[in-house]
Amino acid sequence: MSTTPATPAASGAAVVPPLFQGLFDDAAVFPPGNLPVADAVPAHLAHRAAPYADAVGPLLCGAGRLGELAAAADAATGSAGGTAVAAAAGGTAADGTGPRLRVGLVLPGGSSELGPALTAAAPFVVAGVELATRDAGEAVAALDLLLPPDVPAAVELPRELLRGDGLEEVLDVLVDSPYRAKFRTGGVVAGAFPDEAELAGFLTGCAQRGLPYKCTAGLHHAVRHTDPATGFEHHGFLNVLLAAAETDPKTAAEILAERSGTVLAEAVRSLTDRQVTVIRNSFTAFGTCSIAEPLDDLAALGLLSPDLTSQEDR
């Protein structure tokens, strides 16, 4: 069973608390952000060279945009000062020729995309694979066959297949594998957002099995809230963090329903080092189209130094 992927190396003296290290995968090119790849790459490199770099995971990219990503990475790292910034952003080429971008491959087309995507991702450091499927067993078999052993992966099934006994069956398949689960916590329509009970069922099912997972979409802010523009109910990433270690669905749902940032921040401050480790071994990361928003929320709640989130670093 895999645990939390290695967090990025710090690029400066500022300290990001362990609870938030490597938590925010950069999903800038995905909805609703939809940042052009040519803009997302230099923005990501800047994040990875900023004082808050330890909070930032890899740049997420769909299989069909890897060629575009390679061109943007070449342009960004070839610019004046770009190589120094890129060196803070990832690993180096095997031949020592220079820095490479850390990328998470998002494969919505399933296992058929895995082999070609890994080939196309040769210019990058593949920091993870997120594979969508309707058959967890088939996805595990494909990952076992094709994925390098040092690359973590997460398997996502449609939410309609994770209701009732379907959830138990999928989690049981994944718990016997080296791979994480992935759960969709939002989107661009109201129906993409699970309610507290549905999300609590997933979180506690994983906690009961010691199965790590990542989330994606909808977790733009720290605290549960209703978006004033859309009316969508958004889960807060602090709510999810605090519910991650719970094995009782009712308790987890109550935590997910909490709307007071003061209450959640105080609960975070009361966590022991052991509790933080348990939480992050469960909830490993989530994709966010904005790196700034969650950091600003944490600073406003007094959970992150404002010095880490100064505008000049973004």
Rank of each mutant, 00 (worst) to 15 (best):
G67D: 10
A154C: 05
L59N: 05
L161W: 01
A84E: 14
A94D: 15
A142I: 11
A80L: 08
G137L: 01
L131V: 14
P58H: 05
H47D: 13
V125W: 10
G164A: 00
L69K: 03
A153Q: 05
E138R: 09
A70G: 08
V188A: 09
V140P: 00
R163S: 03
P123L: 13
P158W: 05
L118S: 14
G98S: 13
E130H: 03
L45Y: 05
V56L: 10
Y179H: 07
A89E: 13
V151P: 12
E169G: 04
A76K: 05
D74A: 14
G137N: 04
L107E: 09
A94W: 10
P99N: 13
E168W: 00
P178Q: 03
D74Q: 14
R102F: 10
A87C: 11
G96V: 11
F124K: 10
G104H: 08
L59P: 01
S79V: 00
D150G: 12
L105G: 05
L69M: 02
A132D: 04
L161H: 01
P123R: 14
L162E: 03
D176N: 06
P152V: 13
S177E: 02
D165V: 03
P51D: 07
A153L: 09
D176F: 00
E169T: 05
F183L: 02
L114T: 11
L145T: 15
L118N: 14
G90M: 13
A142H: 09
G166L: 01
A80W: 07
A87V: 00
A127F: 15
A49H: 12
R180N: 06
P123D: 13
A136H: 05
P116I: 12
V175P: 00
G187Q: 00
A89M: 12
P152G: 11
L146P: 13
R184H: 00
A71N: 05
P58R: 06
D135N: 05
A122D: 12
G67E: 11
A154F: 02
D165C: 01
Y52I: 09
L60G: 03
E130L: 03
R102Q: 08
A71E: 12
A122L: 12
G128V: 04
L171P: 08
G115E: 15
E168G: 09
D172N: 03
S112R: 07
A53L: 09
S79P: 12
L143S: 09
G186K: 01
P123H: 12
A63T: 06
L161G: 02
P158H: 07
A139H: 01
G81T: 12
V188N: 11
L146V: 14
G64Y: 04
G78S: 09
D165F: 02
L161R: 04
D150Y: 13
L147R: 12
G128I: 03
L101C: 07
G104K: 08
R100E: 06
D74I: 01
D165R: 04
A93R: 15
